[in-house]
């Protein structure tokens, strides 16, 4: 049996931290920071995900094999999203998007 490191106070602390981060994210969205907004919001989401993964999902007390799966999943998604988004963001020599006149909406 695994020795339990995740205790009730830690669970309550994590819950409060998640709520604080949620309202922080909400508050920052009201400031209207433009371009940086998406990056900040997603960074806060990543922090929240770590809290959920390590405390709520007990990753902190599990074997490395389980952590390896999480690390690989993160890497694959980062690769997938980064390479996909790199296409529309770096278009310079050909139209950035289809011409709406050529394909009007129904």
């Amino acid at each position: 049996m695994i020795s339990a490191h995740v205790t009730t106070p830690k669970l309550i602390g994590s819950w409060i931290a998640l709520l604080v981060l949620t309202f922080l994210s909400f508050g920052i969205s009201l400031l209207g920071l433009g371009e940086a907004e998406l990056f900040i919001a997603l960074s806060i989401s990543v922090v929240k995900t770590f809290v959920v993964l390590f405390i709520f999902m007990h990753l902190v007390e599990q074997r490395f094999a389980n952590r390896l799966i999480v690390i690989l999943t993160f890497l694959f998604i980062a690769l997938l999203v980064a390479l996909t988004v790199a296409d529309p963001l770096t278009r310079k020599t050909f139209p950035p998007r289809p011409d709406p006149a050529a394909n009007p909406y129904p």
Binding site: T73, F76, I77, V81, T84, V85, D87
Partner: peptide
């Protein structure tokens, strides 16, 4: 954990298309 990893990749593909079309 492996099942959750594959579930996350299912959503990951949708997040990638979100990023693609939002960039476009």
């Amino acid at each position: 954990w492996m099942f959750l990893g594959s579930e996350t990749l299912l959503f990951g593909a949708l997040f990638a298309s979100y990023g693609y079309y939002r960039g476009m």
